[in-house]
């Protein structure tokens, strides 16, 4: 429960807002699938935005709620993308049926989560700068390993992935991601995770199972990082190790810190903003890679918690938390 301030507060209205929003987004995606409401470019941008929301929300769990600084999220994305891509291209025979695609995506997530678990073990002893370096090393190792293993296609990458990432599938995964992360964050585990950010030592002395909380944060975060990677691979139909470099991690970091740390509303906003911005900055070419980190530096200087840091729209909260807010206001 890391959100002291709530944006919007009418309980009655809020309780239905999330299901209604989610359902209508999914419905719109289905309608589009049927009658092609949007043109190809718009569809591409929408799917990219969806993948970015998943990446941003899942990284926010570790970097925002838990207050660590992971620069390795592109690594989890790579693991997910390759795991799902290889499964679909090299292991499963024939074309992947549409109904099986969620399983392929989930497979990418599970493999990424397994790696995330290992990284979590490393986070028991090290924190802050050192942990940041560990995540960086992880990213480099993943990239370098993918370049050197012939099975994954080496530096040239993996070709011939089917185009299975449709808008409805993406929207569904976005909803699942936000729902699960919200459930986690507003549970006893989420309180443990935020307590670690605030004061790990005091949290431990107050009974917070810090190791379990760290494992959970890393595993869930990397799972959805892997899911995003799987979707990404099946959107572009081609992946290579260079796609998942530190620049991609930086892009996700910018989303998290623009939108706001420890806020799912913020992640939604940040991911969409950055996606749109990236499209607008396309003509700048390599200067884009200057603008993004520069934005990050300015954000840190002038609004270190991002636009909606530590705040949440009321409609994203579970019902009982909402009631709690009301009670807090009039005890």
């Amino acid at each position: 429960m890391p959100t002291p301030r709530t944006l919007g507060s009418s309980v009655a209205g809020c309780r239905w807002a999330l299901p209604v929003l989610a359902a209508s987004a999914f419905l719109a995606a289905l309608l589009h699938q049927q009658w092609a409401l949007f043109n190809g470019y718009t569809e591409f941008v929408l799917i990219t935005a969806g993948i970015n929301i998943i990446l941003c929300a899942s990284l926010n769990l570790v970097n925002g709620y838990m207050g660590e600084f992971s620069v390795g999220h592109a690594g989890f994305m790579a693991v997910g993308a390759y795991a799902a891509g290889l499964l679909a291209v090299k292991i499963l025979p024939g074309a992947t049926p549409v109904w099986a695609f969620p399983l392929v995506v989930a497979f990418g997530g599970v493999i990424a989560a397994a790696i995330g678990f290992l990284l979590a073990l490393l986070s028991f002893k090290t924190r802050g700068d050192y942990l940041a370096i560990i995540t960086l090393a992880f990213l480099m190792i993943v990239k370098s390993a993918l370049e050197n293993i012939p099975f994954t296609g080496g530096p040239r990458g993996l070709l011939g992935i089917e185009r299975l990432t449709t808008l409805p599938q993406t929207v569904a995964w976005v909803i699942v991601t936000l729902w699960v992360i919200r459930n986690l964050v507003y549970s006893k585990f989420g309180r443990g995770i935020t307590a670690i950010r605030e004061d790990e030592l005091a949290a431990g002395a107050m009974g917070v199972r810090t190791r379990e909380a760290k494992i959970l944060a890393f595993v869930v975060s990397s799972f959805f990082g892997g899911v995003a990677g799987s979707l990404f691979a099946h959107q572009l139909q081609f992946i290579n190790p260079a796609t998942f470099d530190i620049i991609r991690s930086t892009d996700i970091l910018v989303m998290v810190y623009i939108g706001g740390v420890a806020s799912l509303t913020g992640s939604l906003l940040g991911a969409v903003l950055v996606t749109v911005l990236a499209q607008l900055l396309q003509p700048l070419g390599t200067w884009r890679a200057v603008v993004m980190p520069l934005t990050l530096v300015f954000l840190m200087l002038f609004r270190p918690r991002g636009l909606l840091g530590l705040r949440e729209f009321a409609w994203l909260l579970p019902g009982r938390e909402l009631l709690q807010r009301i009670k807090e206001k009039s005890p």
Partner: peptide, 17 residues
């Protein structure tokens, strides 16, 4: 050593948990 950015209630809840 309180969790300064958490609410009073949440500070208690984290131990209650």
């Amino acid at each position: 050593r309180l969790c300064r950015d958490l609410t009073v209630l949440d500070n208690v809840r984290m131990a209650y948990d």
